[in-house]
Design a protein around this nucleic acid. Structure first.
Length: 807
RNA sequence: GGGCGGAUGGCGGAAUUGGCAUACGCGCAAGACUUAGGAUCUUGUGGGGUAACCCUUGGAGGUUCAACUCCUCUUCCGCCCACCA
């Protein structure tokens, strides 16, 4: 009764493997399509998120195969990283062995889903033929000054015993284990991604087929803001305080200056002042505060007066210098000019400490502005700051100008007078890649007492990761404890030297793997330029939104770097991007801690991979969250059985009406799959199946139905395809075309509205002219009651669709 | 606070971009077949009303012959960024 999914799936998985059905072939005469899903971390088990991600990519790849493209659809493993070390400690094994075992398990599960990967191109980032090129890339970056070492205050996770990039700090905690991050000084390797900031921002414009929110997130992360740096001379010394502002139009309203507590000038300013002691204790207090607490909105802005004064260069006014916790050393210059009348934080602070304020932007007469701002005429009346637009007042020669105009004029004037400088500020920081971990790519550098920092020569690559290292889980780089690794001759003077014992952040590994897939076994360079030229860029990239910033930004950075090396001619790696939604159960993310995980393997056992694929595709559009529903799985399974039974009752000839529906379905499914609307594509196929149950299908219709299903439920379709008498795989067939002439019906069903409400329907000849249609409509009995004897004011006709009679 | 995205039956979700709201599936109900049904097939299924009809896409207005779709205001939810100067 039920279709034998188990035998079918095993049979076709074996067939595809034996026939190498998904081998990507570089054929210059054919259009290529590179479909890539973000490769997984080999934890050993695939979860529903993987299943969803990879099913989407698989359907698209198979569809492209049938459309005649030469398809590259590879899979690999992002295999370096901490869990392998933790597992090594816990299970007393080696990270290498543990990881490869996990990869093997995962491959078995991926194969059980019937994904169309070219397994000959498989790669793992933890294998030296791959990470050798990480080292090569690092050396190239070093040569060009893009990799550099710097002692710096770094984010430190005491649980993972490692440094973290700013991007890896989430809510002040480690992105992996959520332990609170501390600050620590260490010599670290950085990549100068900031050198590419303008290009990374500008070429976002090229990415027309990326989700707009990913573009926005990247753009915010790069954080370009234009403004002016203003120099405030201190009153009693030759020191200068530089502040950054994006609102230079409010400069005449600056009534005090605020420094971050950590600002280097603070100590000098307060020296010898009566308040010195009090201020130092305030600074201490802020330093001990967690950043989370400091940033909390409801917390009062705290600050103290330094006793010092400085001079506003635009009007020579002497204004006090304060210190406050709401000014951050990490942003801008660590100092601000405070304009309480036009900045809400400054406003609250000024009220609290009875500091003066001055209005310099007066809302214009425009009612909406006035109403919303409350348009106070004096500072006493103000209950909040006014941050909107208006005209300049109390601003010297700039009075009367609209502030948007004044902003530019004041900036230019100040620059000309040497009071300040027009600058562009960026939020993007250089990328810290050093990790005090074992399971990663060794950074190919040697420290020699005589020669200093010496790069490992290219011919000595790879610097292999030693098999054995002590894992205690306690501080420092495990590699530092492996004597044979650490001790190395200096490449320059051949004297005794030490290797770098830190490894690279794993985001390095994943920043170029998509290029390696074009020629995964190539020996001469990270990838074969000819192959990359044919296959790249990735035509469709699919993965989770959680990688919207880091992974995608780094990959874009590396691609631009490769272009600068002359290895490729494009500078954006991913043409189209799809970010799939998460899989939820009971409206919550599936996770171990919540204990609501549904194991794909158990679903495959009970219903088969095709049913799982079909459910996941049908339950929601790919970009939205997907609510797991056991009954939905059963529905998908029932549908496949319903299709399976059709073959038992094929007729000799299909009715013309069914053929018409078939062609409509082909059109719909083609368009929907091309647009990733798998849910409606499947709904369309279900309608066709319902029509077949009504009218009965012949073999021709059934063949087309199976073809339409084949990207979605491949094993099922291959089996039916074979039963239909085909001797070759359905993959060798072609995506069906539809006959446009069959889509046009002879009759048109017209909806008739009276005053915009549907009152009747009418079957008329297609493309009937209005003159003929009108009397037919007006003769309709059902309309009589609605029209009565009222005069027809308007008679609106939408051809072949609708008539609206206005009375 | 800033940015982006949402809100449609009991549930997941459709709606050719301004033209029949609720396609398709789940669920539910009835019937057929059956020794049996948690299988299969058929039919029904937004709400109210005996009915004619009326109401319905978070809420309030507006534009239009016609609004889930466009505009204004508003409420709630999700995600990302954030004392960003």
């Amino acid at each position: 009764m039920l279709y034998p999914f188990k035998e079918i799936e095993e049979k076709w998985q074996r067939y595809w493997q034996e026939k190498q059905s998904f081998k990507a072939i570089h054929s210059p005469d054919k259009k290529k399509f590179y479909c890539l899903e973000m490769f997984p971390y080999p934890s050993g088990k695939i979860h529903m998120g993987h299943v969803r991600n990879y099913t989407i990519g698989d359907v698209y790849s198979r569809y492209k195969w049938l459309e005649g493209y030469s398809v590259l659809h590879p899979m690999g493993f992002d295999a370096f990283g901490q869990p392998a070390e933790n597992a090594a400690i816990k299970n007393n094994t080696k990270p290498d062995i543990w990881t490869h075992k996990c990869i093997d398990w995962m491959k078995i599960e991926l194969k059980k889903m019937g994904f169309s990967y070219d397994w000959d191109r498989e790669l793992s980032t933890c294998d030296s033929p791959y990470y050798k090129w990480n080292q090569w890339i690092f050396l190239k970056m070093y040569e060009r000054g893009l990799a550099y070492r710097k002692a710096s205050n770094v984010n430190w996770c005491s649980s993972c015993q490692t440094t973290l990039a700013n991007e890896e700090v989430v809510d002040e905690g480690c992105w992996r284990c959520h332990t609170k991050v501390k600050q620590k000084d260490l010599e670290q390797w950085f990549l100068k991604i900031t050198e590419y900031k303008e290009r990374l921002l500008d070429s976002l414009k090229q990415l027309k087929d990326w989700p707009s929110r990913v573009i926005a997130m990247q753009s915010n992360w790069i954080g370009k803001s234009q403004g002016v740096e203003i120099y405030f001379r201190c009153k009693d010394s030759d020191k200068e305080i530089t502040v950054f502002t994006t609102r230079v139009d409010t400069i005449f309203g600056a009534t005090y200056v605020v420094l971050a507590p950590e600002h280097p000038l603070v100590k000098e300013i307060i020296k010898g002042k009566p308040q010195e002691k009090e201020i130092l204790s305030f600074i201490e207090k802020v330093a001990n505060e967690s950043k989370v607490a400091r940033v909390k909105e409801d917390v009062k802005k705290e600050g103290v007066f330094t006793g010092g004064y400085c001079i506003n260069p635009t009007n020579n006014e002497v204004i006090p210098i304060w210190i406050a916790d709401y000014v951050l050393m990490e942003y801008g210059t660590g100092a601000i000019m405070a304009v309480p009348a036009h900045d809400q934080r400054d406003f609250l602070f000024a009220k609290e400490h009875s500091l003066p304020m001055r209005i310099v932007i007066q809302p214009t007469g425009h009612p909406s502005t006035t109403l919303r701002s409350g348009s106070p005429q004096s500072t006493e009346q103000m209950t909040q700051s006014y941050e909107g637009d208006g005209v300049q007042v109390n601003s010297g020669e700039f009075d009367g100008l609209p502030n948007s105009e004044a902003k530019i004029k004041i900036a230019q004037w100040m620059e000309a007078q040497g009071m300040g400088k027009i600058v562009t500020h960026w939020r993007l920081r250089d990328w810290l890649i050093s990790r005090q971990r074992y399971w990663g790519t060794p950074i190919p550098m040697i420290y020699c007492k005589a020669c200093g920092v010496v790069p490992v020569p290219y011919e000595d690559l790879p610097v292999e990761l030693p098999q054995d290292a002590p894992f205690t889980g306690e501080g420092g780089s495990p590699l530092g404890k492996v004597k044979e690794f650490v001790e190395a001759p200096c490449p320059k003077c051949k004297g005794n030297a030490r290797r770098e014992t830190d490894t690279m952040a794993t985001f390095f590994d994943s920043s170029w793997y998509f290029l390696r897939f074009s020629s995964p076994h190539f020996q001469g360079s990270p990838f074969n330029a000819q192959e990359a030229k044919y296959w790249m860029p990735v035509d469709q990239y699919i993965g989770g939104i959680e990688h919207a910033i880091l992974h995608l930004l780094y990959s874009r950075f590396f691609t631009k770097f490769f272009k600068d090396l002359g290895l490729i001619e494009f500078d954006e790696p991913f043409r189209c991007l799809l970010t799939q939604g998460m899989v939820l159960k009971d409206s919550e993310v599936m996770s171990k801690s919540k204990g609501n995980i549904v194991d794909p393997d158990s679903i495959i056992k009970e219903y088969g991979a095709d049913t799982l694929r079909l459910f996941i595709l049908f339950a929601a559009p790919p970009e939205t969250e997907l609510e797991w529903d056991e009954r939905g799985i059963e529905g998908a399974f029932k549908f496949l059985n319903r299709v399976w039974r059709i073959q038992e009752n094929l007729k000799d000839n299909a009715e013309p009406q069914l053929v018409r529906i078939l062609h409509k379905t082909i059109k719909k499914v083609t368009e929907d799959i091309a647009d990733f609307k798998f849910n409606t594509a499947i709904a369309g196929i279900m309608e066709l199946v319902n029509a077949i149950y009504q009218m009965g299908a012949d073999k021709e219709v059934f063949i087309k139905l199976v073809l339409l299903l084949s990207p979605l439920v491949p094993h099922f379709s291959e089996e039916l395809w074979e039963k239909l008498g085909n001797t070759e795989s359905i993959l060798k067939s072609q995506w069906p075309n539809y006959d446009a002439s069959l889509l046009v019906e002879e009759k048109a069903s017209i909806v008739i509205q009276v005053n915009g409400k549907v009152r009747s329907k009418l079957e008329v000849a297609r493309d009937i002219v209005e003159a003929e249609l009108k009397p037919l409509v007006l003769a309709d009995e059902k309309l009589k009651a609605w029209i009565q004897d009222k005069p027809v004011k308007n008679f609106i006709v939408i051809p072949n669709k609708l008539v609206n009679i206005v009375v």
